[in-house]
Simulated assay, not measured.
Amino acid sequence: MKLAVTLALAMATALLAMFIAGEGSNSPLCQAQAAQPLAPRVSFSEDVLPLLKFKCSSCHQAGGEGYEKSGMDLTSYQGVMKGTKFGPMVVPGDPEASNLMRLLDWRVSAELRMPHGKKQLSICDRDTVRTWIFDGAKDN
């Protein structure tokens, strides 16, 4: 029994060493995994923009109160990425540094929280925006 365990450990160690050295990367499993690019988890046009238009654009579009006060237009990718007259709102790849998430998560004073005078966006809605930012805030 000890011999079988010792042989199994030796084989596992040899296989691990091959993969670490890069020699095992020609296995069908590795090739299949390498051939599949990671798809974005969230699409701006299909997930984020409809949310922003439904929940935010009544104020944050040309002529809206939020637009007049801040210059923030949430009706297009270009508008979101332009930010406000006070600066950018999205830091691609870093939702925690993005002012948009600070406003939506209510990590700011009450008078700045978004949406003004309304119920906070759901965790699901906020996580959609957060994931999009984390994934690079792409125009996809």
Rank of each mutant, 00 (worst) to 15 (best):
9 L>C: 01
10 A>F: 09
10 A>M: 13
11 M>H: 00
12 A>C: 11
13 T>G: 15
13 T>D: 13
15 L>G: 13
15 L>R: 04
17 A>G: 04
19 F>D: 14
27 S>G: 07
30 C>K: 08
30 C>N: 11
31 Q>N: 08
31 Q>L: 14
32 A>V: 05
32 A>G: 07
32 A>L: 15
33 Q>F: 12
36 Q>I: 11
36 Q>Y: 05
38 L>C: 05
39 A>P: 05
40 P>M: 10
42 V>A: 09
43 S>C: 01
43 S>T: 04
44 F>S: 06
45 S>M: 02
45 S>G: 13
45 S>R: 12
48 V>W: 00
49 L>S: 00
52 L>Y: 00
57 S>H: 05
59 C>I: 07
59 C>T: 09
61 Q>I: 08
62 A>W: 01
63 G>A: 06
63 G>N: 12
65 E>K: 04
65 E>R: 15
69 K>L: 12
72 M>P: 03
72 M>Y: 07
73 D>K: 09
73 D>W: 02
74 L>A: 02
74 L>W: 09
74 L>F: 12
75 T>M: 12
76 S>V: 02
77 Y>M: 14
77 Y>C: 06
78 Q>H: 08
78 Q>M: 09
78 Q>C: 05
79 G>Q: 04
79 G>N: 02
80 V>N: 04
80 V>Y: 00
83 G>N: 08
83 G>P: 02
84 T>K: 01
85 K>S: 15
87 G>T: 02
88 P>K: 13
89 M>G: 02
91 V>N: 03
92 P>Q: 00
93 G>I: 11
95 P>M: 08
96 E>K: 11
97 A>Q: 12
97 A>H: 08
98 S>R: 04
99 N>H: 06
99 N>I: 09
99 N>T: 12
100 L>P: 02
101 M>W: 00
101 M>Q: 11
104 L>C: 04
104 L>P: 00
105 D>K: 09
106 W>D: 12
107 R>A: 15
107 R>H: 14
108 V>K: 01
108 V>R: 05
108 V>M: 05
110 A>F: 11
112 L>Q: 01
112 L>D: 07
115 P>E: 04
117 G>C: 06
119 K>F: 07
120 Q>V: 07
122 S>H: 03
122 S>V: 02
123 I>H: 09
124 C>S: 14
124 C>G: 05
